[in-house]
Design a protein around this nucleic acid. Structure first.
Lengths: 118, 118
DNA sequence: TTCATATCTCCATTTGTATGGAAATATGGA
DNA sequence: TCCATATTTCCATACAAATGGAGATATGAA
């Protein structure tokens, strides 16, 4: 995952309809869901849904395959993971053990350095 | 993490300067970095940097504390983790073991359902 | 071939975001 | 008190993204 891909993916997810669609597909898993069902569940007009699905595709976050008259969309989990890894890369000066692997929470550090919220 | 917070955080990260700033702070860890050093390392004019830091703050992704004349910014790692958790919530029909915990890659599924990319 | 279904593309309108110079504010030192 | 430093706020300009109706396209069934 490079910076440009990460930016495209983040921009794709930074939109309510697309975030909803993506999370629904993540939850659906590799089986995926047909476009029509996505639109129905989320209450999106077809033109709007199609626009957002295209954005998600261009961002590499979903794929589709045709099945009869339906297009079955599913999440690109590997790319999602690449994005998460990009965000957390070298967390805490490359000392991931210091703040928890994968989900870095800083709580295990010896000097928690408490700070007031801004 | 609710949807609205997730959207705000994603929108904040979907911008090159802010993504750079945030990753630098994630890497710096709880010690953080002064605003000036961020601007210097990333080549951002002060007004531009300040604008982006404000966005990141409002999104709950960074905090700051004053130290003399400098403002020391650091990443809100707990909120970052909340965002990642929100994205991967109920991955693969709530069967996280099926696709790897934390970083869900789908490779461990019994029926990988290979699909052509779109 | 003709029709119904599923989805997409086109496009005009509306809305929101990024940029950076200039001036304002806050802190600490002389 | 006055100045230098660090950072912010103000603001005009420029650019990008979301929406959804109408019509186009693709598939399968009769």
């Amino acid at each position: 995952m490079n910076k440009s891909d990460a930016l495209t993916a983040l921009a794709a997810l930074a939109q309510e309809a697309r975030l909803d669609v993506f999370r629904l597909l993540v939850q659906a898993g590799p089986e995926g869901l047909p476009a029509g069902q996505l639109g129905e569940r989320l209450g999106l007009p077809s033109a709007t849904l199609s626009f957002h699905l295209k954005e998600l595709r261009h961002a590499g976050l979903v794929r589709f395959e045709r099945e009869g008259r339906s297009l079955i969309y599913s999440a690109e989990l590997a790319n999602m993971n690449g994005l998460l890894a990009y965000l957390t890369e070298n967390c805490c000066q490359g000392n991931p053990a210091a703040c928890g692997v994968g989900l870095c929470d800083g709580t295990k550090l010896e000097t928690p350095q408490q700070r007031k919220p801004s």
